[in-house]
Design a protein around this nucleic acid. Structure first.
Lengths: 135, 135
DNA sequence: CCTCGATTTAAGAATCATTCTTGTTTACAC
DNA sequence: GTGTAAACAAGAATGATTCTTAAATCGAGG
């Protein structure tokens, strides 16, 4: 067996999963989805590696929705939309925070700015349409 | 005793506290700070009223810092800065999210946008200076 | 091959913020 | 006063997350 293959199998699976997902999953979703492929995966392993990836800057935590932390395999800052109905977290790829705002923020707070998050909330397309139908 | 005075004493105290505070307190901070004045205050009462105020749009939840929800007596959207060292949540009153961004967001997501939050993270002035001193 | 120290992991216990439940108290209208 | 609805206290219950302990796995030497 190739070196490192087995030792990091779970770690790599978690990172791959995050990078391929657009759903901004929670720790539990990651666990549930990977469990069939990796039967002896434990929640502790998921949380430990998520913490590790965050420290290394490989991933980011993008929001806490109804008390549950949501993760993104893309560590670059970008804009999100959170549906208050179905709790979906969606990338708004076409938007970005203007540099002028970040610069202003640094001046205002007098400290050092490391990151920023812009998040819109409301009802996503699906939930919106579902409501109109049932009306 | 004037009508309604006693019935809502705790509710009003919690709302007043939130409106006067600039610290964006957690439920526990509110409880701890009000407890001396209101000895038989219970955490349940704080949580119940916070939920109520949120539903009524009197306050807003502005962030979850290290797993703890933080509240703001000002329900209008405004920009915040969160210190990753001391967990302070600070208003950046001079900044605001451009209307163009909000409009774009509505178009991108295809649903209805109700709110938005812009949050910068980094080290606040105090923590920054403390680090420089101790270096 | 066999052993070593270091790293990763599984499993479940422990923690902590938040919510729920139950029974009690309060305010107000009649 | 009596009844009804809202607010409350106290503590139990829930649920996400973290910690603990011991076992499995790795790479490097012998």
């Amino acid at each position: 067996m190739a070196p490192n293959t087995k030792h990091f199998r779970k770690r790599d699976a978690i990172l791959d999963y995050l990078r391929q997902s657009k759903a901004h999953p929670s720790a539990e979703t990651i666990y549930t989805d990977l469990k069939p492929q990796i039967p002896n995966l434990a929640m502790g392993t998921v949380y430990r590696n998520l913490t590790l990836f965050k420290e290394q800057g490989e991933i980011q935590s993008v929001a806490t929705v109804k008390g549950v932390e949501r993760f993104d395999g893309n560590p670059l800052p970008h804009v999100h939309f959170i549906c208050t109905d179905c709790d979906a977290v969606i990338d708004l790829d076409d938007l970005q925070v203007p540099d002028t705002l970040s610069e202003l923020a640094a001046k205002c707070c007098g400290g050092s700015v490391e990151g920023c998050q812009l998040t819109f909330t409301g009802q996503c397309k699906n939930c919106n349409e579902r409501k109109i139908e049932s009306a």
